[in-house]
Design a protein around this nucleic acid. Sequence first.
DNA 1: GTGGTCTAGACCACG
DNA 2: GTGGTCTAGACCACC
Lengths: 134, 134, 134, 134
Amino acid sequence: MINIDARSSTPIYEQIVIGIKELILKNILSPGDKLPSVREMASTLTTNPNTVSKAYAELERMRIIETLRGKGTFVSAAFTPKIEDEKIQSLQDDLKKIILDAHYMGIDYDKLADLLKQSYIELSGKKFLRGEQN
Amino acid sequence: MINIDARSSTPIYEQIVIGIKELILKNILSPGDKLPSVREMASTLTTNPNTVSKAYAELERMRIIETLRGKGTFVSAAFTPKIEDEKIQSLQDDLKKIILDAHYMGIDYDKLADLLKQSYIELSGKKFLRGEQN
Amino acid sequence: MINIDARSSTPIYEQIVIGIKELILKNILSPGDKLPSVREMASTLTTNPNTVSKAYAELERMRIIETLRGKGTFVSAAFTPKIEDEKIQSLQDDLKKIILDAHYMGIDYDKLADLLKQSYIELSGKKFLRGEQN
Amino acid sequence: MINIDARSSTPIYEQIVIGIKELILKNILSPGDKLPSVREMASTLTTNPNTVSKAYAELERMRIIETLRGKGTFVSAAFTPKIEDEKIQSLQDDLKKIILDAHYMGIDYDKLADLLKQSYIELSGKKFLRGEQN
DNA sequence: GTGGTCTAGACCACG
DNA sequence: GTGGTCTAGACCACC
């Protein structure tokens, strides 16, 4: 279910974090669902249990998943995010970087905005585009 | 001119790369303009010359700047980017990550698209918005 | 009567121990009173009997409750605690940790002392505040 | 400087976290001061570098320390804590547990309040007792 | 069975 | 020299 690229520069544990966030956003994992055990996921990803553990720990810190002692790890009930200005700042920095990268690949605003929409659709279907006629 | 945050998790040399790309996109640096020497920039940024060197090397690898033996480093003439599928893939991965982060910050598609447009305007004025009525 | 939070990081058996201590301090359970059987309590708390068993064992080790063969488990007669230096040391360590946590939450001494008093009142009414005019 | 009890049930990495918080509160470590490197501290504590790393990572998450790439780890400038209700709740739970423990050691409110004050003085001198005559 | 902690030892990017 | 990541393998508390 989760794709790991061992050659990527983004750490494996972070790829797992991203992968799980993605599965949740795609509704493949729903609140209350049990995640594979650390060992299980480690063996399916052919990675080290510690690495999976680190990913789970980070997701738990973000309140995205929660562990029930001795029972396993589960997707949390939908939570209400609190918007922190400082995080938004880092989001804008990321956006800026993407714009710069795109520019030097010959991708202009219209095309990038399109890529953004495409990614959204790919991630969560068209359901998010409430304000538009598609 | 370039803002370095020593506490940031993005490497300093990359912050320099981003900073220079940004200056070029903003037309503060134009093709043919001379960049400060490695030592000069290192001292104005109070950073290690090796770090600046690495940034320049990366920019040169991208053909964004070029060094003329004994004369210095200059912004390259406007170049025709070739779109490489593999790079586009990484761009989409970055977009995906941003979408996920935004989602868990309570930021939906409309708002994120808005932030993207804002970042564009901040970087290069409205000149890029050719196709729209603003 | 006892509140169990499966998501908490404190073990369930310990939450039970705390809960029973609390009931006793609040005089809801008095010396001589019979506790529910292990199975009974396990089913009301929807937890594992082994877990309740462990809690009872710990409470018995502390002489707070006692089991009478074939009759059940009972709250012990008021006991005369012996102050053990080593336990006081661990109490002070706990206090130290609380002070540090509080400090990094922006809570100063006065406020923390106040919270302590509040917790006391909540646990046992004002009866303990003999030396003060409240 | 930091005392590690390998036999304690609180994890080593957490003892390190507590120890460093304590050193800061005692003004033995001040904002801007450099912490020993991970390897250094690991060797002085005769523990594993990973364990120290975990402690540092947690302290960084709390904004108490920060790492400068390639330079080391430093105590952050004094930060403004934001009070979160949920954290206060957990603080009160901790207080409740302490009260119960103390009660079964024969320690009443007055004595516990006294221990609290003592711990404060030990940690930060009397400077915090602004509102009292000592 | 579950996750959490720890060790020993290795490699890498960064400055 | 700095911290960050990863592996392999072990032990433990909890349910």
